[in-house]
Design a protein around this nucleic acid. Sequence first.
RNA 1: GACCGGUUAGCUCAGCUGGUAGAGCGCUACAUUGACAUUGUAGAGGUCACAAGUUCAAGUCUUGUACCGGUCACCA
Length: 748
Amino acid sequence: MVLSNSMDKEAQQPNIPEIFLQPYEPSGHEDKLYAMWEKSGFFNPDVCIEKGITKADAETFSIVLPPPNVTGTLHMGHGAMLAIEDILVRYNRMCGKRTLWIPGTDSAALATQSKVEGILYKEEKKRRDDIGREELLKRIGAFAEESKDTIIGQTKKMGASMDWSRYAFTLDDTRYNAVMEAFIRMYEAGLIYRGGRIVNWDPNMQTTVSDDEIEYEEKNSPFYYFKYGPFTIGTVRPETKFGDKYVVMHPDDARYTEYQHGQHIEVEWINGPITATIIKDEAVDPEVGTGVMTITPWHSAVDFEIAQRHKLDWEQIIDERGVLLPIAGEFAGQHIKKARAAIVEKMTEKGLVEKVDETYTHNVATNSRGGGMIEPQIKEQWFVDVHKEFSMGPSEIPGINEGDTVTLKTLLKKAVENGGVSIFPDRFNKTYYHWIDNLRDWCISRQIWYGHRIPAWFKDGEIVVQKISPGEGWVQDPDTLDTWFSSGLWTFSTLGWPEETADMKTYHPTTVLETGYDILFFWVARMVLMSSFLLGQVPFKNVYLHGLVRDDKNRKMSKSLGNTINPLDMIQKYGADATRLSLIIGAAPGNDMPLSEDKIRGYKKFANKIWNISRFVLTNTSGIDVTTEPPLSSFSERELAIRKEFHAVVAEVSNDIERFNLYIAAEKAYHYLWHTFADVIIEESKDILNSSDQEARQVRGWLLCHLLVENLKMMHPFMPFVTETIWQELPKEMKDQELLIVASWPKK
RNA sequence: GACCGGUUAGCUCAGCUGGUAGAGCGCUACAUUGACAUUGUAGAGGUCACAAGUUCAAGUCUUGUACCGGUCACCA
């Protein structure tokens, strides 16, 4: 009698591991397993080759981890990213590919420095200049080092099977080298230039910020209509108006035909009479306000463009800290925040205020990296020129040949257009192209200290770009590079570039880049740019974009809403496997994914189901020869159908993984295991296993064991811990490898 | 303003190239201490946002409308 009560069973089945007598408890196993995997070295493809598990000339599968900020902690977004990438990696490793997943962390220069400066001010009431560059860097370094282990430890908890021997940090020596090399090469090609252009200046952080790092906040501010000679002009920023000596209107505006381009008029202005010049320019929208405006080129991008077009003067009104300069006359020295009211008061007294619209709303630019309101300024900065034509070097990018005349913009476009890079889901192609069309030169210098210092040296108005000082009297540019400059090199700087390493040859271009759609521009596009110029290669063949993790009411997870779910808590309560699965199932590529604790809890039950399926199969097949496959002729028709069905499921799951439809793959594997294998096959097998027909018992018993093994493999990429735990308890003769991570993927 | 999504069971969503609706969770009833800190079986529940069109046939294709979400640009 096989199906007996548990007391008898223990007596009858001494070979059943005791472990199965308890429900599956993830927390008892996961850390031990991870340590075991790490110790095996199989996360490193070189070891897999050495041990004869992977063929030395096997196809490669490589992926770089989007490096989390060193100072951060793991949130569900990271959890989703790690789950998705680990599934791809484990699947490909089991398929026998040379599989490399490179881990790393990002210095996140601006965000990190901002954080440390915050602490410095809070605890010691000091600012960066009070302690100096060296001391600040020391403190930031220590802070980064300290939190680094946190995020790495958390990453391991998710089960991420990455090759830690290749761990990279954006600021370590190898990466520093790569950044210097890239900067110098681009400078020498004329693609990096230094120039005075309007930039986004953050007066709080005292640095420039790139266009992509700006966030617009809708704000309600009074909108003032001022008399400007015969005209009426509108503004929300009276404090910028001191230098406004040009009045601009559309050339076709019928209301103003009496005024000629270049004509001078006398107007009474804030601090007395001035001479204004009429400018006709098509940038002015006749529909807005009175169709007339004055311009402040130093503090507005649009105005700057108009000024450039007509070769007008520009003058700085506000300094780097937001204080009015002498041009403001009696207001000089005041901070703009305080000055506005005083200026309006004076204008009112002079009778220059026509009306005030209190209902006006507009978008105010702020620094999304923890800084304040943006004040456009004209500054000498370093830029990447995206429009400059150059002759392409050696190229492996489809549709681009050596010697072609290209710009960085065309490279960006063609890499995707010609299929060198495929984006999933493909609707993001359009977003990507749209971004390229609007792309302006990229300001890459930052006035912060934490980061890659620009390898440029100044002396007597001369500039030399090289890694080390040209000699006495040369002063290095104090600025550092935008963090995305170094991130742009990530697919190859992690492989040892600019050295011609074996890794470079083997693993670049990488197979897939997996990241959130929110950094398509920041990062994905910058990598394409850097890789195509510096290597003549695309950085990756595929881009997989995942969505944001949301709560069960479809709201963003945020601390202020109090709806965050901490992945570590969930791992502790329900296991990493359940946490992973909950982040995969129901999450279509590029779509935001809803998550609730209930969902995670549900998948813990599934882990236990696998556990019990295994327990059943092992308990009820003792005495059955599991090593020799019975001849096909001994299988019943039903059993042949079962095998055929399983192969079909494997084929579908494999296919779905390869097409990045992980949510479908996971669901199919889940459904098969529970509702076909457990509910149907095991249920119908009970009678056969209980019968006295030894041959039928043998065939069915073998089949159950076979299906168990194959299902554990199929489920492994999704739920690595529970499947490996069970694998470790299987009799040796059932396994093709001691560790499930390197067992071979079921035949399709 | 431009562009991109979405609108399908109470909730979250799936439905690829058009052939009379699916999953998970939840709910109801029944069974069960069995491999299962449970599970199984059965069931209720949907004019697939709205309108027009193409078609023998439309969640599925086309056009338009409404609402929700997002991205980018811009506002003197």
